[in-house]
Simulated assay, not measured.
Amino acid sequence: MNVTIDQNSGYCFGVEFAIQMAEDELEEVSELYCLGDIVHNSMEVQRLYNKGLRIIDRAQLQELHDCKVLIRAHGEPPETYQTALKNNLELIDASCPVVLKLQNRVKHAYDSTKAIDGQVVIYGQQGHAEVIGLAGQTGNDAIVITTEEDLDQLDYTRPITLFSQTTKSTKGFYKMKELIEQRVAAAKAAGAEVEELDANDSICRQVSNREPQLEKFAQQHDVVVFVSGKKSSNGKALYAVCQRVNPNSYFVENAAELDRSWFDGVTSVGICGATSTPMWLMQEVADAIQASQPAEV
């Protein structure tokens, strides 16, 4: 049985940058606070905890004074920076540049459309760290949509500017765009004077480009093992890609969740993961499969 790790899987540059900043800082100090999980992968969070990285939530942030706090790649809303000023916190800002650029675009759109009673709409996961940061640019006036049912929140007689969480599915974004356009057209047909939808594909290309790459990889193997944290939005989207092209795809957080029966009679196994999955963890999964049955890498 041949076991192959997808070399296109693993950290995106934003996550890699944030983890590197945390590790560099932990070489100088014994303990460092991080606002929220630095990455949606419990194994990596535990590894960094052992080095001194302490995860805190927003309520705990309010109680901290005179210390350092790492901002992870997902970015933060303006009130986090206000709290830092008030509590004399030194922020180590590892916000992903792609996310920061999108935050600026969302704020500009919100400021520009307020005069015409416009709506800023974000296609994303309600409560996701990145979405909290994006919505914060609008004073939390943005409308977050995840499913078709959420479209009922929009007023189709008013201007709509649509953005996407950077790690959402490209296919999902364009489906939402199409549905909104249909409702805008219906409002126009009913006599409303409204502008065309202003849709902005703000999905990170490091994420979206992985979909076609992953399709090819999943098709090349009898069985695919997708390694990701269960909290990872990107992981869920990319695992769906694997399942679509290869029904023999399985989702695991770590090697302990492997089922040996998946590999009976199999000649080729592909190991892949999310942009929040460390390469060392995929290697552990590959090693566990090799240990259970004779294999070549």
Score class of each variant (00 low, 15 high):
residue 77 P to R: 02
residue 219 Q to W: 01
residue 123 Y to F: 13
residue 258 L to H: 11
residue 226 F to L: 00
residue 218 A to R: 05
residue 222 D to A: 10
residue 233 S to D: 09
residue 227 V to N: 08
residue 78 P to N: 03
residue 145 I to Y: 01
residue 22 A to C: 04
residue 144 V to Q: 03
residue 184 V to R: 06
residue 82 Q to W: 01
residue 245 V to H: 03
residue 217 F to S: 01
residue 181 E to K: 12
residue 232 S to V: 10
residue 71 I to K: 11
residue 192 A to C: 08
residue 231 K to A: 13
residue 26 L to M: 02
residue 263 F to D: 02
residue 101 K to I: 02
residue 76 E to P: 11
residue 175 K to I: 01
residue 297 V to F: 13
residue 126 Q to R: 15
residue 167 T to G: 00
residue 21 M to Y: 00
residue 124 G to V: 09
residue 27 E to C: 11
residue 5 I to S: 07
residue 144 V to L: 03
residue 199 A to L: 01
residue 120 V to F: 01
residue 55 I to Y: 06
residue 46 Q to S: 15
residue 73 A to D: 04
residue 180 I to N: 11
residue 247 P to A: 09
residue 21 M to Q: 14
residue 229 G to P: 02
residue 47 R to A: 13
residue 95 S to R: 11
residue 154 L to I: 06
residue 249 S to A: 14
residue 79 E to G: 07
residue 76 E to L: 06
residue 39 V to M: 04
residue 119 Q to A: 07
residue 224 V to A: 08
residue 62 Q to R: 15
residue 121 V to M: 08
residue 11 Y to D: 03
residue 32 L to K: 00
residue 50 N to P: 07
residue 183 R to Q: 06
residue 88 N to Q: 13
residue 230 K to E: 05
residue 54 R to V: 14
residue 223 V to I: 03
residue 42 S to A: 13
residue 255 A to W: 00
residue 215 E to I: 14
residue 29 V to E: 09
residue 180 I to S: 11
residue 57 D to Q: 08
residue 117 D to M: 14
residue 46 Q to I: 11
residue 90 E to C: 13
residue 132 I to Y: 04
residue 141 D to E: 15
residue 69 V to M: 07
residue 162 L to C: 04
residue 246 N to P: 05
residue 168 K to G: 08
residue 180 I to K: 11
residue 51 K to T: 03
residue 211 E to H: 14
residue 82 Q to M: 11
residue 228 S to I: 07
residue 284 E to Y: 00
residue 148 E to M: 11
residue 79 E to C: 07
residue 275 T to M: 01
residue 31 E to I: 07
residue 269 V to N: 07
residue 271 I to T: 05
residue 176 M to T: 04
residue 119 Q to I: 07
residue 176 M to L: 00
residue 37 D to I: 12
residue 208 S to Q: 02
residue 90 E to D: 15
residue 71 I to H: 04
residue 266 V to S: 05
residue 108 H to R: 13
residue 224 V to R: 02
residue 233 S to F: 02
residue 40 H to W: 04
residue 90 E to W: 08
residue 181 E to Y: 02
residue 14 G to T: 09
residue 75 G to I: 02
residue 45 V to R: 05
residue 215 E to M: 12
residue 202 S to T: 15
residue 151 L to H: 07
residue 85 L to S: 15
residue 55 I to E: 10
residue 192 A to V: 02
residue 184 V to A: 05
residue 77 P to N: 09
residue 290 Q to M: 12
residue 68 K to M: 04
residue 218 A to N: 03
residue 110 Y to H: 13
residue 230 K to S: 09
residue 285 V to E: 00
residue 84 A to S: 08
residue 242 C to E: 05
residue 199 A to F: 05
residue 199 A to D: 04
residue 261 S to R: 14
residue 51 K to G: 00
residue 7 Q to W: 08
residue 224 V to E: 02
residue 213 Q to V: 11
residue 90 E to M: 13
residue 17 F to A: 13
residue 139 G to M: 00
residue 89 L to V: 01
residue 150 D to I: 09
residue 140 N to G: 10
residue 144 V to A: 03
residue 289 I to N: 05
residue 66 D to H: 15
